[in-house]
Computed example of a mutant assay.
Amino acid sequence: MLADAHAHLLPRDYPADAPACFPRMEPVDGETARMLLFGSLKFKARDAFFDAERRIDEMAASGVDFEVLSPMPPLLRYDLPVADGLALARHVNEFTATLCATDPSRFAGLGMVPLQDPDVATAELTAVRDAGLRGVEIASNVLGVSIGDERFLPFFAEAERLGLSVFVHAMPSLSDRLPASTMGTYVVGLEGALAAASLITGGTAAKCPDLRVSFSHAAGGFGLMVPRAQYFWSGTWNEEPPVPERALQHDDGPSPLEYARRFYYDSMVFDVRAVRYLVDLLGADRLLVGSDFPAMPREDPAGRTLRMAGLPEDALADVLWGNAFRFLGMEPPVS
Rank of each mutant, 00 (worst) to 15 (best):
T185Y: 06
A218N: 15
S181D: 06
D210V: 03
Y186L: 06
R276P: 01
E191T: 05
L199Q: 04
V272F: 03
E245F: 15
A219L: 08
Q249M: 09
F215R: 08
R261C: 09
N238H: 11
Y277G: 00
A195P: 07
L257G: 07
L224D: 12
P241Q: 15
Y265L: 09
T236V: 12
V275R: 00
E191V: 04
L190Q: 02
L211E: 04
F215S: 07
S198E: 06
R228F: 14
V188I: 09
M268L: 15
G203F: 03
C208E: 02
A193V: 00
S267L: 12
L257E: 12
P209Q: 10
W233E: 14
S267K: 00
P254A: 14
A205N: 04
E239D: 15
Q230S: 11
G192P: 00
Y264I: 05
L282W: 02
A260C: 09
G220P: 03
V187Q: 04
L248D: 15
G189C: 05
L257C: 13
D266P: 08
L199C: 05
L224G: 15
Y264M: 06
A206N: 04
F222W: 09
G223R: 03
M183G: 04
S216V: 08
F215W: 06
G192D: 00
M225F: 13
F215Y: 09
T204C: 13
Q249Y: 02
D266W: 06
G184E: 06
V279N: 01
M268S: 10
H217Q: 15
I200E: 03
V243M: 12
V187M: 02
V279C: 01
G223H: 13
Y231W: 15
A229Y: 15
R273W: 00
S198T: 06
V269C: 11
K207W: 03
R273C: 03
V243G: 14
D251N: 08
L282S: 01
Y259D: 05
E245R: 11
G220Y: 05
R246P: 00
I200M: 12
A247N: 06
S214L: 04
R212V: 12
V213T: 12
S181F: 07
G189E: 01
D210R: 12
V275N: 01
L282E: 02
L248T: 14
D252Q: 14
V213I: 13
P256M: 14
H217C: 08
W233G: 09
A196E: 02
H250S: 12
T204G: 06
A195E: 04
I200D: 04
G203Y: 06
A274F: 04
D210E: 15
T185P: 00
R273D: 08
A247G: 14
V226F: 08
E240R: 14
A197T: 15
F263V: 03
L199A: 03
E239H: 10
V243T: 14
A193I: 00
L282K: 02
T204I: 12
L199V: 10
M183S: 07
G203R: 05
A206K: 09
D280Y: 01
M268R: 05
E191F: 01
Q249H: 08
G202A: 08
T204W: 02
G221L: 08
G203S: 05
F222Q: 07
G202Y: 11
G192S: 01
A218S: 14
R262V: 01
